[in-house]
């Protein structure tokens, strides 16, 4: 999924008009040639854009036309065409319901995600700094990491109730491990040569950590942060479906049980757009922090 998002060529082609202001600089033929090559380039990127969005457009078309032609009216109720869903979405926005639920979800995920990032990086640095702590804790961390966060949802609900605390906690829990493990991995894979070079300059252990280990681990840590972002949305929606009075997950489940099917699809659409936006933002952030890596631009 992320490969589509990380590819810079998917960005809408910038309107490419011939640069104004210097018509006297080139001969008319050269200008014409330049314009031709420009036209070519615009054409090529437009064609690439069409090709890349073709699958999504086809899917949306199928969603629109399929329910109206392929299935019987009594099943159509469960799978309304796209325009009905979009209509429900606009209604939800207009009366403010969607904003309320979106805000509830965002607050929880940002809180949980924030706690996870700060906690994961801090614990990760401490654990990887002390080798004995690391060998002591790693088996336990592996055990927790391989326990699906949602399997623990009943535990969180039992201990913390169905309020905000349990939601934020489960999000923080699910997002914590990618950050933690990537931080440990980032610190562990520092080139020992760089540490030798820094030590040869007389840097203290703490300084080496601050000026060599940490910056070298940053790209790996941010990969963990991006994974945590995805995980936090995923787990939050599921948690909201089980027991909540607000939030996008609640909106989806509640619409379903009260037979407001278009609203349910509008909620699902919102969730996927939210996921896309979060991932896009985090990918940008990750790329910004790893721009010194030779492979960072080509991914």
């Amino acid at each position: 999924m992320s490969s589509i998002l990380t590819d810079p060529t998917t960005r809408p082609p910038r309107s490419a008009e011939p640069a104004p202001g210097r018509p006297e600089a080139a001969a008319p033929e050269a200008v014409a040639a330049q314009r031709r090559s420009l036209v070519h380039r615009v054409e090529r990127s437009a064609r690439a854009g069409v090709w890349r969005s073709a699958a999504v457009v086809l899917f949306l078309l199928l969603w629109e036309i399929g329910p109206q032609t392929l299935i019987t009216p009594d099943t159509r109720v469960f799978l309304p065409p796209l325009h009905v869903t979009l209509g429900a979405w606009v209604d939800l926005v207009r009366d403010g319901t969607l904003q309320t639920h979106l805000q509830a979800s965002l607050t929880r995920s940002v809180l949980g995600f924030g706690i996870a990032v700060v906690g994961g990086i801090t614990v990760g640095l401490v654990v990887s700094w002390y080798a004995t702590v690391q060998s002591f804790l790693t088996p336990l961390l592996e055990l927790f990491r391989n326990t699906a966060a949602l399997a623990l949802l009943p535990v969180f609900t039992l201990l913390l109730g169905i309020g905000e605390v349990s939601k934020v906690s489960i999000v923080a829990y699910a997002a914590f491990f990618p950050v933690l493990l990537n931080t440990i991995a980032g610190v562990r894979t520092v080139d020992p040569m760089l540490i030798r070079a820094a030590r040869s300059l007389g840097l203290s252990q703490l300084r080496v950590f601050q000026k060599v280990v940490l910056p070298s681990a940053v790209p790996t840590i941010f990969t963990g942060v991006r994974m945590a972002g995805t995980a936090s949305i995923l787990v939050l929606i599921a948690a909201e479906m089980v027991g909540a009075k607000a939030g996008l997950g609640y909106l989806i489940v509640n619409s379903q049980s009260s037979f407001q099917i278009p609203q349910m699809y509008a909620g699902i659409l919102t969730v996927s757009l939210l996921g896309l936006a979060v991932n896009l933002g985090l990918v940008r952030l990750e790329r910004h922090f790893s721009r010194w890596r030779p492979d960072a631009t080509g991914r």
């Binding site: 040569m193 030590r199 040869s200 300059l201 007389g202 910056p215 010194w292």
Partner: peptide, 20 residues
């Protein structure tokens, strides 16, 4: 007594900090 700025080392593998 340990490394210091009175001596500089140049390594075979350059050991440059790639983020700088």
């Amino acid at each position: 007594t340990g490394p210091g700025l009175d001596r500089g080392i140049v390594f075979q593998q350059y050991a440059l900090f790639p983020w700088r």
